[in-house]
Computed example of a mutant assay.
Amino acid sequence: MGAGRGAAVAAARQYAGYSLTRLAQATSYSKSYLGLVETGLNPVTHEVVAAYERALGVGVYRPDINHPRLIKIEGPEHLRHIREAVEAGEPDIFAQGPTSSSIDAAVAPVLGEAAIENFRRWAVSGETSTLRANAVSILGFLPGRRNADVVVAVLESDAVVRRLCLASEVSRLTQCGWETALQVADDPTTAPEPRRLAGKLAKEAVDPKDTESRWCAGYLLQRMAAVLGAED
């Protein structure tokens, strides 16, 4: 278990293009200590995860959705290519399939204003629901009222994107299969373990760092209220 969690934080670091030396400089931990964490010899504590997220961006260690076509960053050069593409107005991987939390968290902090404006446009009028949903996920990680307003407006008005984002939230939190996640998005009362899901959603609903997750959590909790009440 320790080795698996260590590999996950190592992947988060690599996705963001950080060396161990650079990450050590950005945290209060030594390079040797972080190396032992990533190989599973030291525990991945809450404090270690928090340090990684402060350096790499909130969400880099979040579980990914359970989707057969999930796209991940292949390394620093891939991240650079993605950033250059979106700055130039080319959606690149964001139009090709669902992107991982690691991509969203690694890309969002390095975007210039031109790229952010492109994501705002794609969220509203992207040619495919995949592109619109991925753009909403990126904007959800970005600060500022304008980005939050776009996320909320799209989730409230675009039923297809809303379904994809709700399913992603369910899949990420419970690691259920994608078809099950879509079913729960359509009818939250069908969640296999509603009490467990509700507990996770409650934490997301008050997280100020991701507008998309916060909105989706509130939406799902409201619609699960009846079944949760019936269990009491």
Score class of each variant (00 low, 15 high):
30 S>T: 13
31 K>W: 08
31 K>Y: 11
32 S>K: 13
32 S>Q: 14
32 S>C: 14
33 Y>T: 12
33 Y>L: 14
34 L>K: 11
34 L>W: 10
35 G>P: 09
35 G>F: 12
35 G>T: 07
38 E>I: 14
38 E>S: 12
39 T>S: 15
39 T>M: 13
39 T>C: 14
40 G>F: 04
41 L>V: 08
42 N>V: 07
44 V>L: 05
46 H>M: 04
46 H>F: 09
48 V>H: 02
48 V>R: 02
48 V>T: 11
49 V>W: 05
49 V>R: 04
49 V>T: 12
50 A>C: 04
50 A>M: 08
52 Y>V: 07
52 Y>G: 01
52 Y>E: 07
53 E>L: 05
54 R>M: 08
55 A>I: 10
57 G>A: 08
57 G>E: 02
59 G>H: 01
60 V>S: 01
60 V>H: 01
61 Y>V: 05
63 P>M: 11
64 D>Y: 09
66 N>T: 14
67 H>R: 12
67 H>C: 11
68 P>G: 07
69 R>S: 15
70 L>Y: 03
71 I>Q: 02
71 I>L: 02
71 I>C: 01
73 I>M: 01
75 G>E: 00
75 G>V: 00
77 E>P: 01
78 H>V: 01
79 L>V: 00
80 R>C: 06
81 H>D: 04
81 H>A: 09
82 I>F: 09
82 I>P: 00
82 I>D: 00
83 R>N: 11
84 E>C: 03
85 A>Y: 03
85 A>N: 12
85 A>V: 06
86 V>R: 13
86 V>H: 08
88 A>T: 15
89 G>Q: 10
90 E>P: 07
91 P>C: 06
91 P>I: 13
92 D>P: 10
92 D>Q: 13
93 I>G: 03
93 I>W: 05
93 I>F: 02
95 A>H: 06
